[in-house]
Design a protein around this nucleic acid. Sequence first.
DNA 1: CTCTTGACCCGAA
DNA 2: CTTCGGGCCAAGA
Length: 121
Amino acid sequence: MAEISEFSRKVIEWIRKIPKGKVVTYGQIAKLAGEPHASRGVAWILHSSSKAYRLPWHRVVNAKGEISFPVHSSFHRKQKKLLENENVEFSLDGKINLKKFQWQKFPKSVQKNPKKPQMFK
DNA sequence: CTCTTGACCCGAA
DNA sequence: CTTCGGGCCAAGA
């Protein structure tokens, strides 16, 4: 196993815990892993480690509930098919109803953190 | 070793 | 509505 940071390990761990029929956004995983702004790293970890760790990468979508791949891409069609096989519904626009299918690990109150250190003006 | 890239998210203008 | 920039991570050249 390659030596990876704790963050990556958490990301992989969380992804493996995604229940069937649920989807998670990149930002969601990043928050769960303790890095609210590391959604980019999450994406790359999936991209790179999905094969090595056998991760359900198809359950990870962007914040819009849409598959990140181009519509004409075979990956897009493959991911959509995998999700539909898990009873995940797509709208006509190809979007997923996050209200129903997003995997919410913790309540909303936790998502809004009263302490926001950075971002000075 | 450094530099670039990649399947992104969020907020501001 | 669109466009832009900042932020984080790891792997590859």
